[in-house]
């Protein structure tokens, strides 16, 4: 039962992620990404981490992707135009394409190396992270510094966005 569910969610996550880049309508890309996040959340449930699963939905699928959709809809981005792109797009010139191929090969090699080292993936140890209380406690004790630093990082990004979006004073 759990195995079946795992393969189902994994297949949806991978299939949806592939389709995100495989088809040309940006709105559908956003929706498929949401589907992928949903499948990931299902995987978290299988790992006995319901809190993380729900947060995944609230933060990523709910909040962040709504903003993505918002922007895509506001820009009303048309279907990607292949003929135009191939002639003009700077990333589709021979140089960048070779660089991209090299990077993809590097990534594949790294993945292979990581997978070949697999097997010694130990369990989490004694630290139980399944309950909300346990997650909260470890966030505010062991990981208090990274947690606060992350929040400051987000604050900086927010202030930056406000400054960039601010209308110039007409005076």
């Amino acid at each position: 039962m759990t195995d079946t569910a795992f393969y189902l969610f994994a297949a949806i996550a991978i299939g949806a992620s592939l389709l995100v880049i495989a088809q040309r309508n940006p709105i559908y890309s956003v929706l498929l990404l949401i589907a992928s996040f949903g499948a990931l959340s299902g995987l978290y449930v299988l790992l006995d981490a319901p809190f993380v699963a729900v947060i995944q939905i609230i933060v990523y699928a709910g909040a962040i992707m709504v903003l993505f959709l918002f922007v895509v809809m506001l820009l009303n981005a048309p279907h990607e135009d292949t003929d135009y792109d191939e002639r003009v797009h700077p990333l589709l010139r021979p140089g960048p394409m070779k660089l991209g191929a090299a990077l993809a090969l590097g990534l594949a090699a790294e993945l292979g190396w990581a997978l070949s080292r697999g097997g010694d993936t130990g369990a989490f140890g004694d630290a139980k992270v399944d309950s909300v209380a346990a997650i909260g406690r470890s966030l505010f004790t062991d990981y208090a510094f990274p947690f606060e630093v992350t929040s400051i990082l987000i604050l900086v990004a927010m202030v930056g966005a406000v400054v960039l979006a601010r209308r110039e004073d007409p005076r």
Binding site: I34, V54, I57, I58, A61, G62, A63, V66, L69
Partner: peptide, 9 residues
């Protein structure tokens, strides 16, 4: 809360 935020879509 999560499902409510899905309803926006």
């Amino acid at each position: 809360f999560a499902i409510t935020s899905m309803g926006v879509y």
